[in-house]
Write a protein that binds this DNA or RNA. Structure first.
Lengths: 66, 66
DNA sequence: AATATATGTCAAGTTTATTTTACATTTTTT
DNA sequence: AAAAAATGTAAAATAAACTTGACATATATT
């Protein structure tokens, strides 16, 4: 699964730590999601999408490998 | 997090086992997601939404408790 | 160039998702 | 009413998410 966190953060000009605080997870959780080291739960995905004001599908995209 | 799996399955007229096979998980996984006993991964949520042809947000909804 | 801020990553630990097997109950079909 | 199909659940095992703390590197600020 791909993600656009880096781009969306850049658009909103917020850091990984900022995003982590907004959705109440650790900074490492954001970092590892952003760098594709693990897949977030649907709750986290919904919260992240909400922060960026976009649908989940615009931020997380399935790949053939999924 | 709430979900509309039961309704969406009814609309498409498919069983839990059918849905499970479509997205390659066990039937129990579908059952436990549907009965809110656990939260699926973002990959599963995306796949389920894709099966029903609707955005993730229309199938899984954040609650105040999330 | 020095300092501060942001990011990458690692290891160890806890919690939660997911699988498999199995059985009981409910609902649908005949 | 009987049989078949669908659903609910439970226990045990494994995999994966998430946390905390810590440190190294990279990027931005002064």
């Amino acid at each position: 699964m791909k993600n656009n966190l880096r781009i969306e953060r850049a658009i909103k000009n917020i850091t990984q730590a900022d995003l982590a605080e907004l959705i109440k997870v650790s900074r490492q959780t954001i970092n590892t999601i952003e760098s594709n080291r693990y897949v977030p739960s649907a709750v986290l995905a919904l919260k992240i999408a909400k922060v960026f004001g976009k649908p989940v599908e615009e931020i997380f995209e399935l790949e053939d490998s999924d």
